[in-house]
Structures are given as C-alpha cells and as structure tokens.
C-alpha cells in the first residue's frame, strides 16, 4: 500500500506539471490543446540536455538535473511561444493551432529522440542519469516507515512540482498579477480598458505554462521511467497530456486542488498495472476511469452552475482591441 501511494504520487506529479501549465494558460483565456505535444517536446529537450551533461567523464549530479530541466523548459517554451504567436498575435483559431502543436510535438519528439539523442550508447547514459541523479532522494528515507516511503522517497521533481503548484495558487489568489491575469481570462476588453498589458500577460503565461508542462515530459522519462527511453515514448506522453487537460477541468481551474487531483489521477492511472489477475478488457476499462470521472465533474459543475467553478469566460476567444 505504501509503495502504491508512493508510485501514485510519483506518477501524479507528471499530471501536475501539465495541469498547472494548462491552468496558467487557460487563465489568460487561451485553451492550449498543444499541451500533449509540448510535454513530448519537453521530454525530448530534457533527454537532449541530460545527454549533453552526461557526456563528460565524471558528470556532476546537480549539473545533470539542472541542465535537463533547463533544456526541457527551453524546448517546451519554444513550442509554447509558437502557439502564443499564432493565437495571440495572428489570432488564429486556438483549437486548431493547439492540435497542430500536439501533432508536431509528438512527431518531432519521435524523430528527435530516436535519430538524434539515442545514438552512441546514449541509452545507458540516460538510464544512469535517471537512476542515480533524477531518482536521488533524501538518504535514509526508507528507514522512516510509511511516512518516509510515501513522502520522502521521491526525487527532486516531485517537490518541484508541488512548489510550482503552490506558488501558482498563491499568485492567482493573493497577488495583483493573479488578479490581472484572471481579469484577462474573463474579459480582455475590460482588462485592456484599465491599462493591463493584455498581450504581454498572454505571452508570459502561455510560454510560462508551456515550459512548466514541458517539465512533465522530462519528469516521465527521467523520473518515472528512470531514464529508460522507449521508441514510442511520444505516444505515452501524449496520452498523459490529454489527461492533464482533463485534470484542469477536474480541479476546477485551481492549482491547489490540482495537487490532490493529480495524485488521484496518478492512482487511477497505475491501478490497472497493480491489480493482478484481471483480463485485458478489464485493464482497458480501468484506464477509462479518469475520463469518466472528468465527465462526471463537468456534469456536476454544469448543473450546480456556480459562477466561480466555471472556466474563464473568454476562454478560446481571440482578442483584438479595435474589434467592433
């Protein structure tokens, strides 16, 4: 049981990165369906960074982790910037652009990982980095019983995810930046009329959100898979990406709730592999549960119709100041 919960948390933070990234994007009024592709690209960039940092004779663990994170942020942020340019500056349709980003991101990752990163014995280097450096946790955590197993046996990525989620929650709720951002998501024309830099905010939070989501991809490859990179990694991450977007709805656009929600989703996701002796069909049905739960949440919030649990009012709409 302890191990199950620990795995759920370890897996859930992948969702948490994607979910918090998407929440920040959606709060600026943009529905980024490119998150799955952006998470893939984050994984590709992260692997690339780790590969570079590992190529020395005696790589330092801290350096490897930081390089991996930086490259993941950079790659994912770059694809986020493309999305932002298309939807904010050129005002193209957000859904179409997002789906295009997903398709591009997955294809790019498949090519980049298989043809560029995984050359000349990189798989052993990555596996080493994943196990030794990304998996490194507080020494002696295993001796503290269930508490240690569940909460302390994780690599730095888990705590990073939770810190990011908490910071996002505080910023959205208690700061002026958060107030302005929420105003933009609700009604950009209003925000503009009081002098908020709408375009600036949108770019910042779309790119920032994408970069955070990209960490999810890195977290899957280096953290959960311990650096074992399969050739179809892009497909798995894409699936996780869609669930992250579902998680945004599940957690009612609240990053603090997303911490709990991601652990629940993590449990549901790994459940099918932990229960032995069930048929293939039953496994598939179990894998459906997160989606069913999301639909139920949508139904309940729609019926209750409370104003605070609804998505940002101008989500998915382009804004142009001189529009009449």
């Amino acid at each position: 049981m302890d191990n199950f919960l620990a795995s759920a948390i370890s897996f859930g933070v992948i969702f948490l990165f994607g979910c918090v990234g998407e929440i920040l994007t959606e709060k600026s009024g943009h529905l980024n369906l490119g998150i799955p592709g952006i998470m893939c690209v984050g994984a590709a960039g992260g692997c690339f960074g780790v590969r570079i940092a590992m190529s020395g004779s005696d790589p330092s663990g801290v350096l490897v982790v930081i390089t991996g994170i930086l490259f993941a942020l950079l790659f994912a942020g770059a694809l986020g910037a493309v999305y932002a340019f298309l939807t904010v500056s050129l005002r193209s349709n957000q859904n179409v652009t997002g789906l295009a980003c997903t398709i591009f991101g997955a294809g790019f990752t498949s090519f980049f990982i298989n043809s560029v990163v995984m050359q000349n014995g990189a798989d052993s280097l990555l596996a080493k980095a994943g196990q030794q450096f990304f998996g490194a946790h507080i020494p002696g955590a295993g001796d503290l019983g269930w508490f240690g197993t569940i909460f302390l046996s994780h690599g730095v990525r888990v705590y990073l995810a939770i810190v990011i989620a908490v910071v996002a929650a505080v910023v959205l709720r208690y700061t002026k930046v958060g107030l302005n951002l929420r105003a933009i998501g609700e009604s950009p024309a209003t925000a503009d009329a009081v002098g908020i830099n709408v375009t600036g905010y949108k770019y910042t939070f779309i790119v920032g959100g994408a970069a955070i989501a990209g960490l999810g991809g890195l977290c899957y490859v280096m953290g959960y898979m311990n650096g074992v990179v399969g050739s179809t990694v892009d497909q798995t991450i894409q699936g996780i990406g869609w669930l992250s977007i579902a998680l945004v709805i599940f957690t009612l656009w609240k990053p603090a709730l997303a911490i709990l929600g991601s652990i629940v989703f993590g449990m549901l996701y790994i459940l099918s592999s932990r229960i032995t002796g069930i048929s293939f069909v039953q496994i598939q049905l179990l894998n459906l549960v997160p989606y069913v739960v999301t639909i139920l949440v949508l139904i309940v919030t729609s019926i209750v119709g409370h104003r605070e649990t609804q998505p940002p009012a101008s989500l998915g709409l382009s804004y142009f100041r001189e529009d009449r």
């Binding site: 107030l179 929420r182 105003a183 609700e186 209003t190 009081v194 002098g195 908020i196 830099n197 009012a313």
Partner: peptide, 14 residues
Amino acid sequence: IDIFTAAQNIVLGP
C-alpha cells in the same frame, strides 16, 4: 469582471 467583487474590479490594473 462578473466574478470579481466591486473592490477587486476597482483596483484592477497596473
């Protein structure tokens, strides 16, 4: 902004 309070609407902006 409909879901903000009067005061939040008033202080909105840089």
